[in-house]
């Protein structure tokens, strides 16, 4: 399944041997993957394996040290400031904790991108906001301040904001972190529903395998900055790759070591000879 060929012409995002270093630390090491258009793709990996970096590279907020990141066939690195901003208008991003503007109400948060990019009259903005909020089931919460929202609601508002500009690609950064099972199910359901209803391409960065495997079409596994496996959810479930198995079964120790590299325990305690 590691060799599964990807259809290059149908890829929204393509990474061509991308390496990203933060100082001396290699976050991504020679990564080549592609994300299929119109599907929900999940990117799995433990904490600190470069998943968020992946999203930031797609959004052009970080530039790769080597290699090319392509969005809809265009190299992000080769874009001018204007082209990059035009490309970003075609992307939506849902941050881990929503990243709502704390000084604005729910309603103002949702229409923020519309206010910035269009000259639509107030009445139409209002209707659009109501429609977007209705899509996430929060039409009644439009006059609340963001501080009055629960974690799950905040993420749904952020989702309404992310789809305000009708993007083609939407990226979710850890959408399930810190949510109760009901809220998790609600978000998962929304991700799946929106993808079908709006014809989006979705990228889901997460370490919540159980929920995600039910809604995604394709999975990519990251470990230590490299892609260690990819395939459909069924293929992943049956994978005999030890890294993936450890991840699926939640084993404490395995190819992903429990211990941070250290010197010998006994000699560290001063016991060794």
């Amino acid at each position: 399944m590691d060799e599964k060929p990807t259809n290059k012409s149908n890829s929204m995002i393509e990474f061509e041997s991308v390496t990203f270093c933060y100082g001396a630390r290699k976050i991504l090491d020679n990564v080549s993957v592609s994300v299929p258009t119109g599907k929900i793709t999940a990117i799995f990996g433990g904490s600190g394996t470069g998943k968020t970096t992946f999203l930031k590279l797609v959004g052009g907020q970080l530039a790769p040290s080597h290699g090319t990141v392509k969005f809809d066939g265009q190299s992000i690195g080769g874009m001018s400031y204007k082209q990059l901003y035009a490309a970003r208008r075609r992307m939506g991003m849902l941050y881990q904790f929503g990243a709502l503007f704390t000084d604005l109400s729910v309603f103002e948060n949702v229409i923020f991108p519309l206010r910035e990019h269009t000259d639509l009259p107030e009445q139409i903005l209002r209707d659009l906001a109501i429609m977007k909020l209705d899509a996430v089931g929060l039409r009644g919460a439009r006059d609340l301040m963001t501080s009055e929202l629960s974690g799950g609601m905040a993420r749904r508002v952020a989702l309404a904001r992310a789809i305000a500009l009708d993007p083609e690609l939407i990226m979710y950064d850890e959408p399930f972190t810190g949510l109760d099972p009901v809220a998790t199910a609600v978000i998962a359901n929304l991700i799946s529903k929106l993808n079908d209803a709006l014809g989006l391409t979705s990228v889901l960065v997460t370490h919540d395998l159980e929920v995600s495997l039910n809604i995604v079409d394709y999975c990519i596994f990251f470990a230590a900055g490299s892609v260690v496996g990819q395939g459909t959810p069924d293929e992943i479930r049956q994978s005999d790759n030890p890294l993936i198995k450890q991840f699926i079964n939640g084993e404490i120790d395995g190819p992903v070591p429990l211990h941070y590299p250290a010197s010998d325990y006994r000699s560290d305690l001063g016991l060794g000879g």
Binding site: G59, Y85, R88, M91, F97, A99, T102, F112, P113
Partner: peptide, 22 residues
């Protein structure tokens, strides 16, 4: 600082709004 640490600036950037200008 709060806008930065809660990803608000980054979110704005991803909405194609330049946080510098805005």
């Amino acid at each position: 600082g709060i806008m930065k640490s809660s990803d608000q600036l980054s979110a704005m950037e991803m909405m194609a709004v330049d946080p510098f200008q805005r």
